[in-house]
């Protein structure tokens, strides 16, 4: 299975790395969007699979990042775009820290789901008041930044340069999340997810681990939001709506909850479904809903779990071990 994942990742890397030279402009655009969605989905999966928290309002933090970047680019405050990204990520982290402090104290399970959902809708409502943030219409035609790095410059007005900027930033984010979750921090989170009571017994501060996970998850979501803005050049409250909050869940479940790489597969499948059905209104919802239902009912471990079962069955002849699910 490990080898299979490695091959898959190399293939994926090559596909994304060569996209501007191999496929048409429309698909390149979708690949760029997919990269931001991948970070977004991974950040949600970090909460869900590693810390056991199902947030239904994760798009709020994505929105914090996106709107921060949009404001700085649209109104041109002359801040270096990398600093804008840093600022957006920081604000996303701060806001999710505050939300975590309020919400995690009392709520869990369904209460947590509804509270986070309501908070994200509150953000949508608040954006609706602000002419500065474009109210319900959002901020359109955002200019792309030009970044000076002393030795070289990146001009995002050039589609290829913009794509590779996105690509490198996404790689960094994914690598960072991988490192974070495959060490001490990740194991602590997993312990809390599987059994908070026992985790507390062995001396893990459950409350702190949860707040930390929520904060980091929000920061990465905001980072994804920041990256989307120069690429899509428009932000609308739709980015904050609950339907967008649902995207990482769908991707995670589809790809395989409990696997670090699961959400990536999920995002790719969802992007392809959306691309293939873009001309039929309603069809993509039906397809996505149907696929997801099949996954939840028949293969709760998602595509990755399904693959693992096949691989392990064929290599050992024994049925796969069912991993304990929090």
């Amino acid at each position: 299975m490990k080898r299979l994942i490695a091959y898959g990742l190399v293939l994926l890397f090559l596909l994304f790395a060569t996209a501007p030279y191999t496929v048409n402009a429309g698909l390149v655009f979708i690949a760029g969007i997919a990269m931001t969605e991948i970070i977004f989905a991974l950040s949600w999966n970090m909460l869900f699979s590693y810390a056991g928290l199902a947030s239904f309002g994760h798009a709020a933090f994505f929105g914090v990042g996106a709107y921060t970047a949009a404001v700085f680019l649209k109104y041109d405050y002359g801040l270096h775009f990398l600093l804008v990204i840093a600022l957006g990520t920081f604000l996303g982290g701060v806001s999710s820290f505050v939300v975590a402090i309020i919400v995690l104290r009392r709520a869990s399970g369904i209460q947590l789901a509804i509270l986070t959902l309501a908070l994200s809708q509150l953000v949508v409502t608040l954006i609706g008041y602000s002419a500065f943030l474009g109210r319900d219409e959002g901020i359109p035609s955002i200019p792309r930044p030009v970044m000076e790095f002393g030795l070289f410059r990146i001009d995002m007005n050039d589609q290829v340069q913009a794509y590779y900027f996105l690509f490198v930033m996404s790689l960094l984010a994914v690598a960072l999340m991988w490192l974070l979750l495959h060490g001490y921090v990740g194991r602590r989170m997993k312990a809390v997810a599987i059994d908070p009571e026992r985790a507390a017994f062995v001396g893990i501060d459950v409350w702190r681990v949860r707040v930390f996970a929520f904060t980091i998850g929000g920061a990465f979501a905001a980072f994804a939001g920041c990256l989307l803005v120069p690429w899509a050049q428009i932000v609308t409250p739709d980015l904050v709506m609950w339907l967008h909050s649902a995207q990482p869940m769908l991707a995670t479940l589809l790809g395989g909850a409990g696997f670090f790489w699961g959400p990536i597969i999920g995002v790719l499948v969802l992007s392809m479904v959306n691309y293939a059905t873009r001309t039929f209104a309603g069809l993509s919802e039906v397809l996505v809903g149907g696929i997801l239902l099949i996954v939840v009912l028949l293969a709760p471990q998602g595509i990755m779990g399904f693959l693992r079962r096949i691989v392990e069955r064929s290599s050992t002849g024994k049925p796969a071990m069912v991993e304990e699910q929090a």
């Binding site: 997801l292 009912l297 699910q325």
Partner: peptide
């Protein structure tokens, strides 16, 4: 089929039913 399944999965199953229903209504 969802009896005894963790809450998150039932929520997401219900969510996919919602997608099916609203997408179907749109069609």
């Amino acid at each position: 089929r969802l009896a005894g399944v963790p809450t998150e999965y039932t929520l997401i199953a219900a969510f996919s039913v919602m997608l099916l229903a609203s997408g179907g209504a749109e069609l």
